[in-house]
Structures are given as structure tokens and as C-alpha cells.
Nucleic acid binder design. Structure first.
Lengths: 255, 255
DNA sequence: AGCGCTTATTGACGCAAGTCAAAGAGCGCT
DNA sequence: AGCGCTCTTTGACTTGCGTCAATAAGCGCT
């Protein structure tokens, strides 16, 4: 019965290729409220239009649908416009490792540049919309726009630095610290989008959280319960309220 | 007495800034036997010369000396010419996380681009020489040389993909698997430089290995002993011989 | 509203790897 | 050659998290 689910999902992908919808919704970088997060400050009006021209929008991805799969030819990087996606790799024996969650304004797919094929898969955790940025166009545009070139070097560098943070987390921290760190990360990314830093809905399952943090579901669940008992969190299923941000920060720091 | 060691090391750095030696050794990309690893294939002779012009060589780093430190202003990325370096981050409470080892032909420092300051420190594990590549020059040059631009995007992307591999390793693997994976990584990187894939000297200590793999020294040591007992390895201090490459590969695969 | 699914919580138990401790090996110094 | 480091190995014990198992809670279906 597991197999059935997977097949279903594959069919879904085939039935609805993400760039073939007749009634596409076409927003523009110019009036995008996420531009501050995903574009370089220093870009001028005319430059933004040039960038806007190469970007392809497409109909939203449904929950569970793939944006790309490990091994797919690399064509584009993607900016999240709404919803959440997870990136993950599959090991030889079929197990999954979640390598990142991507929220609106964030960019994914950059790990595919090296080998010209995607090094990870990306799927929507809920209905999600993305801007597709064809990479060769981006390269050409970058060559003539120093700000843009710099911006993409910076984006990739940030991805490296963040992965290294995660490496440290996985290598040195207890279960409590890992969960605390993830919650704080989500909190600050929400704040950047002018959403509440203390109250939000987790778009990912406990399984995904555990997978990302190198923990089992049970452990994640236990940590949530413990934090609730300590009045640091209010957990109601996927709804999280951070009651004591300071305590959470203290918890996230390696002791 | 630990303090003394640290102070000594800082003094060393101050006394010998890496670009102020009167008798610098000046090799060129043109005749560098590592060019195949660190440069893009597609670069033409004239282009290589241009790149060569912006690269700064300096006197070798001594064992323990820093190439850069976390928080230092970001100026350049570095290609290793000889020796080995480790990159590491220091957590708030002073503990260290080794985020990578860098062998000849490999490039480090790219995590500094995002914030314009280095996100990690890099120090020599043995006497080492590096080529310093000033980043602003590299950016300018890239804008006019598509191959070079592409190459650096690829290098950064590869770093991302490799970090994600490490994330999976730390998140999902047993001590045996981690050590096996590191040995195989070193083995294949040696092979790429036409060195023996089965016999080599570990330039890093057991502490560094453990730190990198998220294990304690004791565990690393025990794994080596176990592998020796199983006739997979011949371990003699830092000298390693891989006796059974297949068995090692099997071990590295997640089971 | 009620069935069948997936997801989450909680408890009891076991084990891989960490901690503590001590001894031995390697290596730079004088 | 011998002292004083640091690095490595090995053993005995502890522990945090994984595993297994059972129950409960959510959610999309009809």
C-alpha cells in the first residue's frame, strides 16, 4: 500500500507538468512583497525588469508534488513564492535525508549546478508556488550585472554557511538543542517576512523534522512534550507558540 | 598551559603575515600540475594567463598557522597548492566543529562571500602552500569569461552538495560507516591527484577526524582497531593502508 | 457521522557511543 | 639519550536516544 501512494504521486507529476497551465498567474518582481528577501538591494528598476523577463511562473504545486527530483537535469533554480518545500536526498538503501526546508523568498536548487543535475529532490509540503529562474539566462544576465552576479555568489555562499551550521548542530548537539535551533530558525525566518516570530504553524510533519535533525519521530515528540511541560512552548498539533523565547535560545546554545 | 599554546600560535601568525616574504616562490597556473583539478577545462591559454595574473602566491604556512579566522574580513578564496588544511567553526561555548579538510587542488574560503567575512577558520595541518585569489578581481574577470563564471558557480555548488553528503552521514550513519566514508573520500581525492588510493598518511589527528565525523577520539580509535582486526585496514599510527577496498565500500554504504 | 488511513504521543527496554580513567607510543627539546 | 609534551589506544561503566509496541488523535472519504 505504500507503493500505491508513490505511484499515485508520480502520476500526479506527469499529469501536471509545472509549466503547462493555460491560465498562469503572472506576478512581477516589481510588485512582489518578497523582493526584499530574494533580490539584491542594489538592483535598479531597469535591471529588475530584465530579471523579471527571464523568470517563469507556473501554476502552484500541490502538496506532495515534486518540483524536481534527484538526478533530473539541472535547468533552473527556484524562488519560493508561497508555501513550503523540503529538499531531500535518498541514500542507496532507500532512506531519506531531509537537507533543508524552504520558505517564501528563499531560493533552492543551487546544488544542481555542479554536476548539471539535481543533487537532491524537492517536494511541496503544502500547496506552493515558485518562480523558476533558468540558470543559463541567469548566468548571462549576471555577466552584465555585477550586483546580480555578486548576489548569486552570496546566495550560494549563504547556503554553504547554513549547511555548515547544520553540520555542527548534527555533530555536537543534544536532541533538545536541535529542536530548539530549528524552532528558532523558523521563528527568525518568519520574522523576516513580517510574520509572527512566536506563533506559527509547522508545515512539516514530525517525521520530516526528525529526519532533518537526525532524530526519530518519537524523540522529536518527546522533546516537544518536555518543552511544553517546561512552559517554553505551547504545542497544539502543528500549531506552535513560543512562550519563552529566551529560554529557547538558551536551550539552543551548546552547553 | 593550554593558554600558552594558543598565545604562541597567535604570535606566530602576527610575526609572519602570509604575503610579506621577500623570497616568494612563483609558480604559474600554466605549469601547475593541479590545474586540472582547480581550473575549468575550457579555459584558453590567454584566459589562464589573465587568471594567473590576479593570483597571489605566498610563503608556505607552517603547521598550526591560520590562513584566515572566523570573522576576518573576506578578501579572497584560496586554492591549496600543497599540504592539508582544516576548516572549522567555534561554537559560543568554545567548542570546535571541523567542517572540512582541504587537499591540494581544492578551494576553500567560499563560505565568506555571503557576509563578507569568513564564516569559519582555516588552519594548516602540516606545512602548506596556497594560491590566494582575490575575490573582487575574480568577480570582474568572471563577468568577461563565461567559463570561469560557470566554474565558480560549480565549485560553490559542489561545496553545497558535499556538505549535504556530510549532513546525511552525520544524521544517519553509525561510527563505522562514518569512518569508512571519510577514508573512501580521502582515497578518491588522492586518486584524483594520481596518488595511491590505498596507501596514505593521515595528515589530521584522531581528534580532528572525530570532530569532523561527530565522534569522540576514543570511538575513532576503536573503529580503526576493529577494522584492523577485520583485515580491512592496516593502521600504523597515521599511516593507513586499505587492504580490502570493497569491504570498506560496503561498510560505508548505509545498511 | 463513522470508517480507514496517516500522524502523533507515551511507556518500557536495549544498545551504540559517550565519559572517565589509565597506560603506552610518538615526537620535539635540550 | 632522556625529559615532557601530546596523541593514541584500551577497558569499565553510564546514558541519551533508538527500537518496539500500543494507544490516541487528526483528517479525508463516502
Amino acid at each position: 500500500m505504500n507503493t500505491q501512494l508513490v505511484d499515485l504521486d508520480v502520476d500526479l507529476d506527469k499529469e501536471t507538468p509545472i509549466s503547462a497551465c493555460p491560465h498562469e498567474y503572472h506576478p512581477h518582481c516589481n510588485n512582489c512583497r518578497l523582493a526584499g528577501i530574494c533580490l539584491p538591494f542594489a538592483l535598479e528598476g531597469k535591471e529588475i525588469d530584465e530579471l523579471d523577463n527571464i523568470i517563469q511562473r507556473s501554476k502552484p504545486l500541490q502538496k506532495g508534488q515534486h518540483l524536481y527530483r534527484e538526478g533530473d537535469g539541472f535547468e533552473s533554480v527556484y524562488a519560493v513564492r508561497s508555501g513550503t518545500l523540503k529538499a531531500y536526498q535518498t541514500t542507496d538503501d532507500g532512506r531519506e535525508q531531509v537537507t533543508g526546508f524552504y520558505f517564501p523568498g528563499e531560493i533552492l536548487g543551487m546544488d544542481g549546478i555542479a554536476k548539471n543535475s539535481h543533487a537532491s529532490s524537492a517536494r511541496a509540503l503544502e500547496t506552493a508556488a515558485v518562480c523558476e529562474i533558468p540558470f543559463t539566462s541567469l548566468e548571462k544576465l549576471s555577466a552584465g550585472m555585477p550586483h546580480l552576479q555578486r548576489h548569486f555568489f552570496q546566495l550560494m555562499s549563504r547556503e554553504i554557511a547554513e549547511d555548515q551550521q547544520l553540520i555542527t548542530l548534527l555533530s555536537k548537539s543534544s536532541a533538545d538543542e536541535r529542536v530548539a535551533a530549528l524552532l528558532l530558525s523558523i521563528s527568525s525566518r518568519n520574522a523576516r517576512r513580517k510574520l509572527s516570530a512566536t506563533q506559527f504553524r509547522l508545515s512539516m510533519s514530525r517525521v520530516d523534522i526528525g529526519n532533518y535533525l537526525g532524530l526519530t519521530v518519537e524523540t522529536v515528540s518527546r522533546v516537544f512534550s518536555r518543552m511544553q511541560k517546561m512552559s517554553i512552548l505551547q504545542v497544539e498539533n502543528k500549531e506552535i507558540e513560543i512562550l519563552d523565547l529566551e529560554a529557547l535560545k538558551e536551550m539552543a546554545d551548546l552547553r
